[in-house]
Nucleic acid binder design. Structure first.
Length: 640
RNA sequence: GCCGGUGUAGCUCAGCGGUAGAGCAGCCGAUUCGUAAUCGGCAUGUCGCCGGUUCGAAUCCGGCCUCCGGCUCCA
């Protein structure tokens, strides 16, 4: 009756109860669960003869999940003790913690949460043993009826025939659950309930709404505190707060929700990004186009947006004609394509537009710059032959990664979405297009995941999700192959053999939208932008009035080289001006006093430290280089 | 859109039935200053909006709106 136990670099041959063995080895409280022959398991069991038992501790994702899943059970246990009328939903571990869904008419208040936390502490200090038991379906149903857990009965119905039906019990709390769990409630040492929010039962908005209590737990209080501090730090970087503080963007209640305004600094930042991107497009053979924001409804009927996207569009009527504000730029570009006869010699044809679109997003989904009702896409539509598809996609991908690199973004998730159940176009063309996307990804050599069946009905696509704060991912770059619109608009080109052929269309955005991208940048840099896109690059601080004249001389010298500077004329002490410049996250601070004036120098500092005194020309040269190189490090040119 | 929370000066917040306050920012004055907050004075408001209760509402009640936490959605 012996089995093999593996932990870190150790291998043992053991027998008997796993939990006992772990205790004897001095690993009690460290080992949270086990993988027996590759399957997750509780600890309080006797492994089968000859099995291989891998021990899981906090350093493994599975170990953390077990710990937090048990935390969720303790939460549910506490809630049932305090509010016996509550019905249980589900309660899994998630990325940074856990949640449990409860059905209850009364909302949980902040005070309730504190009471629940206290009850949880009680349950933990009782150190109840957590036991698994399995029941035949009939008996499981009886038990759940007895417990009056109607939602759990719904879950039971969906457990496939032949699969074991397991329950977990701690004290008088019983829950239908696959497990595994910690062996004792006392093993959860540090936890915190974070908040309550609504969540539809089983994620369907037609179902009743549950109250979801989110929490997190860690092995030690120190780790928990650290996590909570990180959350607070993340909130300080939140683009919605920081972006407004720094004057990057604003919204106004009287203008309407989800409509973005750019004050001067934000507008400067955006223009700098646009300028850079515009030049890159022209270098890469894109042709600029500009299309109206308003087009007649008829056009949107032909494009299919009327049928498929109407509830997200803004409409208006003028002279008995219905118009729609564009939610997308494609129909406009298509009209330009169709305005003349196109030859195969014209292809690929790449139309680029910084196209501002408006989408009527449901009120609850708006989120600062990341999800707005009006935004500007760096949009292009490439019309090409099937043969050109792969090469074009490859070029777009290169472009995408070049841009992300330029802005210093490295955290992204790439997804290739393939043919869904409902689709148009032949299987051959789908296969070809999907292969083209895949080949392009392979040739660039990036990691990507495949979302089987997640493509649009009109074609497969590549999406790049950019990581924001607190695990949020926002779709930025996208490359979508489209077989539908060329069909609907009867797009053609003249082939070498004189026949009319249908082009393929690629919709693509490099950054996604300027709004969303700027939101990501604010959070990525905490408002401390690389020099080349910083709205104000240098703030000049004259020490006393007699240095103002020289400060202007310095400013003019900067302006001559297109460096964006300004002078702080406040009648304040140097310390105060420095503090102000740092809090405004201005990359370089030039201090000018008697010494500097006399010698034609400036003293330079960043938000962290004094870099010393330099000849004005030398500093300007260094800054110009930093701007030209789009340098990302913001610790100052001293660190070259 | 749904569930819950929230809204007072430009910002951060106090006041919670008797008619609006602090700090910072702003303005005025003094100070002319060397690497993260100089001192003094002044002014600041449809207390989110609409309606109701009350002798009296920022405060209590109802509706609407914004924003926040989620869910759903995201061609």
């Amino acid at each position: 009756m012996s089995w093999k136990m593996i932990y870190k670099d150790n291998v043992w041959q053991k027998e008997g109860n796993l939990l006992e063995v772990i205790k004897k080895e001095g690993l009690g409280g460290i080992i949270l669960g086990a993988k027996i022959d590759g399957k997750l398991s509780d600890l309080n069991i006797v492994p089968k003869d000859g099995s291989i038992v891998e021990l899981l501790d906090w350093s493994t994702p599975e170990g953390r999940d077990i710990y937090r899943h048990t935390s969720a059970h303790i939460l549910a246990h506490a809630v049932k003790e305090l509010f016996p009328e509550v019905k249980l939903g589900i309660g899994p571990a998630i990325e940074d913690g856990f949640y449990y869904d409860f059905y209850r008419n009364e909302p949980f208040t902040q005070e309730d949460l504190l009471r629940i936390e206290n009850k949880m502490r009680e349950i933990i200090s009782q150190n109840l043993s957590i036991e698994r038991f399995e029941l035949p379906r009939e008996e499981a149903l009886e038990l759940l009826k007895e417990l009056k857990e109607e939602f759990k009965i719904e879950l039971l119905d969906e457990i496939p025939e032949g699969e074991k039906i397991s329950f977990y019990r701690q004290g008088n709390f019983i829950d239908l659950c696959r497990g595994p769990h910690l062996p004792f409630t006392g093993m959860v040492r540090a936890f915190k309930l974070i908040n309550v929010s609504g969540a539809y039962w089983r994620g369907n908005e037609k179902n009743p709404m549950f109250q979801r209590i989110y929490g997190t737990s860690f092995l030690t209080q120190e780790e928990l505190d650290k996590y909570l501090e990180e959350r607070e730090e993340a909130q300080r970087r939140d683009h919605r707060k920081l972006g407004k503080e720094l004057g990057i963007f604003d919204t106004f209640e009287e203008a309407g929700p989800g409509l973005i305004f750019y004050p001067p600094k934000g507008a400067m930042l955006r223009l700098l990004i646009e300028d850079f991107e515009r030049r890159e497009h022209l270098k890469r053979g894109y042709l600029p186009v500009i299309t109206p924001h308003l087009m007649q409804a008829e056009l949107w009927k032909r494009s299919g947006h009327w049928d498929n996207y109407r509830e997200n569009m803004f409409f208006l009527e003028v002279e008995d004609k219905a118009y729609a504000v564009k939610p997308m730029n494609c129909p406009g570009h298509i009209l330009i394509y169709k305005s003349t006869i196109r030859s195969y010699r014209d292809l690929p044809l790449r139309f680029f537009e910084m196209g501002t679109v408006y989408r009527y997003e449901r009120s609850g989904v708006l989120y600062g710059l990341e999800r707005a009702r009006g935004f500007t896409q760096d949009d292009a539509h490439i019309f090409c032959t099937q043969e050109q598809l792969e090469e074009e996609i490859k070029n777009v991908l290169d472009f995408v990664f070049y841009m992300l690199r330029s802005f210093g973004l490295k955290d992204y998730i790439i997804t290739l979405s393939t043919k869904p159940e409902k689709y148009i176009g032949s299987d051959e063309i789908w296969e070809k297009a999907t292969l083209a996307l895949r080949n392009a990804l392979e040739s660039v050599g990036v990691e990507y995941q495949i979302a089987e069946g997640e493509g649009a009905f009109y074609g497969p696509k590549i999406d790049v999700g950019l990581k924001g704060l607190l695990g949020k991912v926002w779709q930025g770059p996208t490359i979508q192959v489209d077989f539908n619109l060329p069909e609907r608009f009867d797009l053609t080109y003249d082939a070498p053999d004189g026949t009319k052929k249908r082009p393929v269309m690629i919709h693509r955005a490099i950054l996604g939208s300027y709004e969303r991208f700027i939101g990501i940048l604010i959070e990525h840099y905490g408002g401390r932008f690389p020099l080349w896109i910083a709205p104000i690059q240098v703030r000049i601080l004259p020490i006393a009035d007699r240095h103002v004249e020289y400060a202007y001389y310095v400013l003019r010298s900067l302006e001559e080289k297109d460096i964006r500077g300004e002078i702080d004329l406040d009648q304040a002490k140097l310390n105060y001006k420095i503090r102000k410049a740092i809090s405004e996250k201005i990359p370089y601070i030039f201090i000018v006093g008697d010494k500097e004036k006399e010698e034609g120098k400036v003293s330079v500092r960043t938000h962290t430290r004094d870099l010393g005194m330099f000849n004005l020309e030398d500093v300007i040269g260094k800054l110009m280089k930093e701007i030209r190189d789009k340098k990302l490090f913001d610790g100052g040119f001293e660190d070259d």
